[in-house]
Design a protein around this nucleic acid. Structure first.
Lengths: 226, 226
DNA sequence: ACCTGAACACCGTTCAAGT
DNA sequence: ACCTGAACACCGTTCAAGT
């Protein structure tokens, strides 16, 4: 009666996976659509399943709970952002500090604004799901990339590029998140660009290793830390 | 039968208000306690009412829904933070830029860290409730204060102090929010302090109005904005 | 292997009834 | 004027039954 003993060890997954992968993809897309359509608060598992053309039970076959579904959706989104930023950063290798600071900020802003509606809609679920860890993970990965760019800077040297990079990435992403969550229309986007460029450039200039013999502009005194 | 026509216009609110104010206070405190004890996800209206020693129905007599309750709690929290920052900033009037930048950052960090558990616990509800508006409101108010400090700076002048102040406040609060939501123990607090001081100082230096005849260090070129 | 959908527990919110 | 708590609607999650 058992057709093939083997099926327990090497089940014919090909068609099986194809079906289930299609289902999972549908669930992802449905999640984003529902999120955009009715907002996070009204995003119910039933609604997502419905939109994906399956029943709730099926959803729970692939995700242990609502949070896990949302977490996956967010991970995808963060990967898109990271990839976009990294792509834009490649041209910055070996450039001057001002070019790097400007390019970095622009890369972030462009990445977030490419799908501004999604970026905005993603904020709530991101936090609800404990996204700090996910963001930190994505930021750490992205920071590796940024660190290389910093190390390649033609007119400045930095101690501990990795810490600086991580801080820059965290600052950019948290600031953008806040600005986008607010309501920042495209009116404010260019303001944000100008200010963030100065922020990152000013920070990196402040943190750079002074070249021997260089005329020193006033630097920030390291005051006692309580 | 009607004891006093007047009561419709001037009801004896004194004892009445005293009772209800006590109830409202109890609900606020209970909310924070429940939040700290079981987290936002498990903060149910029944649980809050229970902890406050009243029934759910009573809670709904004072707050139209769960969100309104949480919003009020958050408003209180934001006011505390603002007040703390403002208090710490008063001594910065007329100081040098480096002192102002350092003092500002320290004021923020200290305010958030005073009740770090509350700050951390407050992040989720803040976002869930659409706190961007509340934060923006608090930030705008705080920015007025910071703008005055900037205007009083003894060794630098700024164009449009108000914009700069708002940006600094937003940057500080969003960065701290992200760092705290993450898990930043006290280990990371001093790192954060150092980096944030450089961030704010570097930004403000970059944005200041150059004094006539001053030796200009390289400034950020204003590049074309896409 | 994958899907279905009725059923259950739980939570926000209401409202008729109390003091 | 203020409080109570059972009742209702809705949502996340499960699971026995299908193909």
């Amino acid at each position: 009666m058992v057709p093939n003993q083997n099926h327990r060890f090497k089940p014919r997954k090909q068609p099986v996976q194809a079906r289930s992968e299609a289902t999972v993809s549908a669930l992802f897309e449905a999640s984003v659509q529902v999120l955009l359509a009715v907002g996070y608060r009204k995003l119910t598992t039933t609604r997502v399943a419905e939109r994906a053309g399956v029943s709730v039970g099926t959803l729970y076959q692939y995700f242990p709970n609502r949070q896990a579904l949302i977490t996956s959706v967010i991970e995808r989104y963060l990967e898109e952002i990271s990839a976009s930023v990294e792509r834009d950063c490649e041209v910055l290798n070996g450039r001057r500090l001002d070019e790097i600071a400007t390019g970095l900020v622009d890369a972030f802003i462009d990445a977030k604004w490419k799908r501004i509606d999604v970026s905005r809609a993603m904020h709530e679920p991101l936090v609800d799901v404990g996204g700090a860890k996910l963001v930190r993970a994505a930021a750490t990965k992205g920071a590796g990339f940024v660190a290389n760019v910093l190390a390649s800077c033609s007119d400045a040297e930095f101690p501990d590029v990795h810490s600086l990079a991580l801080f820059v990435v965290m600052a950019c992403s948290s600031l953008l998140q806040a600005a986008i969550a607010d309501h920042a229309g495209s009116v404010e986007r260019n303001m944000l660009r100008v200010h963030m460029r100065a922020l990152v450039f000013g920070y990196l200039r402040e943190m750079r290793q002074p070249k021997p013999g260089e005329m020193q502009p006033p630097r920030l005194r390291r005051r006692a830390i309580v």
